[in-house]
Design a protein around this nucleic acid. Sequence first.
DNA 1: AATAACAGACCGACCGTTCGGTCTGTCAAA
DNA 2: TTTGACAGACCGAACGGTCGGTCTGTTATT
Lengths: 193, 193
Amino acid sequence: MTEAETRQQIILAAFKIAAEKGFANLSMNDLVRASGVSKGGIYWHFKSKDEIIRAMFDYVLAAQISIVDATLSETGSATEKLRRIFRLAEQAAAGQFASPLDLYALAAHDKTLSQRLVGYFDSYQQRIALLVQQGIDEGTFAPHDPDLSAMNIISLLEGVFLVGLSFTPMRDFGAQVENAVTLLLEGLSKREL
Amino acid sequence: MTEAETRQQIILAAFKIAAEKGFANLSMNDLVRASGVSKGGIYWHFKSKDEIIRAMFDYVLAAQISIVDATLSETGSATEKLRRIFRLAEQAAAGQFASPLDLYALAAHDKTLSQRLVGYFDSYQQRIALLVQQGIDEGTFAPHDPDLSAMNIISLLEGVFLVGLSFTPMRDFGAQVENAVTLLLEGLSKREL
DNA sequence: AATAACAGACCGACCGTTCGGTCTGTCAAA
DNA sequence: TTTGACAGACCGAACGGTCGGTCTGTTATT
């Protein structure tokens, strides 16, 4: 086992526990059981529990940004790309990881984590703003401030998943996502005069 | 001090701690210090920490619903009411309480809490759906499914605060809220043909 | 005297962290 | 080819501290 492999093994086990019991209830003893690595081994690779949390944080944020980047670099209209981003996030929500909600809650009371989160939202906003600008250039979006609009898009996206994941009945989460993105596109669109 | 007063005193102190350190780090010993009530006293009024959390949960959700109810019962167009709800929530976010974010995160891994949350979102959705129906009846909103639209409105509202509270720079949170509600109203509005 | 409403010392369980020791593999000297 | 020195990776018992919760004692009211 190389250094990187063991680290990844520990991190992945940590995500598994966090998905079940929440980040707040992630204990080192549980992590020992779930990862198959001993206490000492874990502390050989990470100098504290906080460092593990930070590593998980970075892992999730980087993954999210790279998903967005991949979508943006594809060909297609701004409208199509926006729909794609919402649908991808939908898949991610159904995936193995705990909701980002837990991470945000953690960051709310931790300075170093919230700094990372700010950096994340910054680059997220920049990327979506470019997309909005593309839509404006294509003539499909009304010429609103791309930065403000980008924040609204991100807010809606995050909100849909926050509510969707909390509101368990969720007869049809997919339909809700589609409806949200359609509402969004209506709001962004240029009106025929 | 009556029973109800002491209970409230404990709950309010708990909110104060939660706002500073998060719900996950709310300890009974801290609560003793902050509330001015001893361990024995607290456990006289609440049979466990979980019961305190549950009481806080209900407190926040009931407060939110009553704010929405008050706004809905006022006179005015659906458009005006929607703007008002967003602005009220903005004030609440600047208030003394911790972000609901923490509560949602807690509920995500606690069955009894998530049940309460589902009930909350249910009545929230019903109320907003009525508002959407009002807008449709007034002829300002396009005739979309009021229930789905209501969920989208709630999602955007929650998302705006989630992102707004996490994304600390927040040059101008008020402007962001205004922009969000405007985008929303554009999306909901009936198109001129 | 009886009881409601506390106060605060105290409890065992569990927390994150440390630390002495072990195991495996590498590599140079014999 | 064997041997011995060494290093990195890992183990798990143990530690101090904190956790939620309990217990006995006290006070004020009835």
